[in-house]
Design a protein around this nucleic acid. Sequence first.
DNA 1: ATACTAAGTAAAGTATGTCTAACTTTTTTT
DNA 2: AAAAAAAGTTAGACATACTTTACTTAGTAT
Lengths: 165, 165
Amino acid sequence: MKKGEKLSESLEDYLEVILELETTRKVARAKDIAEKTGVKRGSVTSALKSLGEKKLINYEPYSYVTLTPEGKKIAEGISSRHSILKEFLYKILQIDETEAEATACRMEHAVDQKTLDRLVCFFDFIYKCPRLGVNRLQAFMKRCGKKIPDPATCKKCMDSSADEK
Amino acid sequence: MKKGEKLSESLEDYLEVILELETTRKVARAKDIAEKTGVKRGSVTSALKSLGEKKLINYEPYSYVTLTPEGKKIAEGISSRHSILKEFLYKILQIDETEAEATACRMEHAVDQKTLDRLVCFFDFIYKCPRLGVNRLQAFMKRCGKKIPDPATCKKCMDSSADEK
DNA sequence: ATACTAAGTAAAGTATGTCTAACTTTTTTT
DNA sequence: AAAAAAAGTTAGACATACTTTACTTAGTAT
């Protein structure tokens, strides 16, 4: 698996699921992979063969699979993308958790490393800038679309202490 | 084209490009579509047939194509997703324009309407909240990863007027 | 230990979406 | 108006990724 070649979204999903299963149940079995990814068992076999050829998993027919170091690195990368995106959707945009989860799943294949780095940096600002106050943003997002603060509200807010709710 | 069925990423891309060509050159021709999408002419023909069957474009062999009202609605939706995502990447995360463009292209197929609505709402806060001051956030993002403000800097910022650079 | 059941695999079929190469239609040039 | 060029189409091939059905292997229970 050369660095230049990039995995299909489908194979990325398999790796992510395998990592999750390895973590929660020690080993990943085809049946569980099928359930988690929502595909049939037969499809899993093909995917595992493909991942095995790419040296991303240790695959022996009729046995459970484990990630190779290379595969694990990739899986962890995807998982990290997922978490960061979900955090943005859930914590910043205040989208409900289930939906945030699903959208993060779709987005995780589309973002590159730079965007993620920037997102993390962005979180840093949002969470730490005392002038902003993350609660203030979150409160605004929660009533998103309902009403935009009028100038008077803004003035009041400006005069208040930064750390308050 | 029922509301429930959703287009493949590929077909979404074609619609988006067709809209763009209709806008900039009045009509969309297969050759231009091929260039914009980066596929060969033969592939475009197949895609156009498929879009034609779905009543999203008016397709007659050997003629240029136009979007049906339904197709236009979808294309505009995708285009809007693209713009909003690009704005987030470019204006907020301060990713350079070319890269923001490319990433938005990949992400536009993954986000749903709710996420977009929230993003727009989020922009509203970021741009309008005088306490935050969008310039402050942008300045922070520009030097992203270089250094995080120390408490002293924060204090100084808190004491300064909100609208300053 | 054998028979049963659950899990895994294999093969054949479907659907997308791409390419190439040959062919047809349209447009342009002369 | 005929020839040449450009644009569009068709057909066959390939890759991915999925399903279904039938078969094989592994694990469990008696």
